[in-house]
């Protein structure tokens, strides 16, 4: 009965104007949820596939022409054994299309909003995504 109802719902493709029971509603809900999950899972698999292909293409291109990538600018570090001053963050920071004053403002905002002193934060890179 359950399977028959399920098949009827899927195959009919159209329940317009028909009254449905609670059991039918539950079946529709189950099938609907499965459809949503299945479609989004297919998309997820597609993304994984594309990212693998793109990764392989990029690796192959890198092997062919190893371009010299600019090394990130080293942030001044405090001598070992000494804590960093409050105004300095940890680690190396790479700036892409962002000037130093803007980067300093961004780091200060993050520090202020998170309530964490700057010398306990490590920024890896700050880059401009879109220049409008």
């Amino acid at each position: 009965m359950f399977t028959a109802n399920l098949l009827a719902i899927v195959n009919s493709g159209l329940l317009a104007g028909q009254d449905i029971s609670i059991l039918d509603a539950i079946l529709i809900a189950v099938v609907g949820m499965v459809v949503v999950i299945a479609i989004l899972a297919v998309i997820a698999l597609f993304i994984l596939l594309v990212s693998k292909i793109m990764g392989a293409i990029e690796k192959a291109a890198e092997k062919k022409a190893p371009a010299a990538s600019p090394k990130p600018a080293a942030a001044p570090q405090a001598p070992k054994g000494f804590p960093l001053p409050d105004t300095q963050s940890q680690g190396k920071l790479q700036l892409e299309n962002v000037d130093e004053p803007t980067a300093a403002v961004i780091m200060a905002i993050v520090s202020n909003q998170s309530g964490i002193p700057l010398n306990r934060l490590a920024f890896k890179s700050i880059k401009l995504l879109e220049d409008k």
Partner: peptide, 18 residues
Amino acid sequence: PVSLLLGAAAQLGIYIAF
């Protein structure tokens, strides 16, 4: 891409309300 599954699960309310 796992995000997509979370986006799917969060449609549960549609079918419960139905």
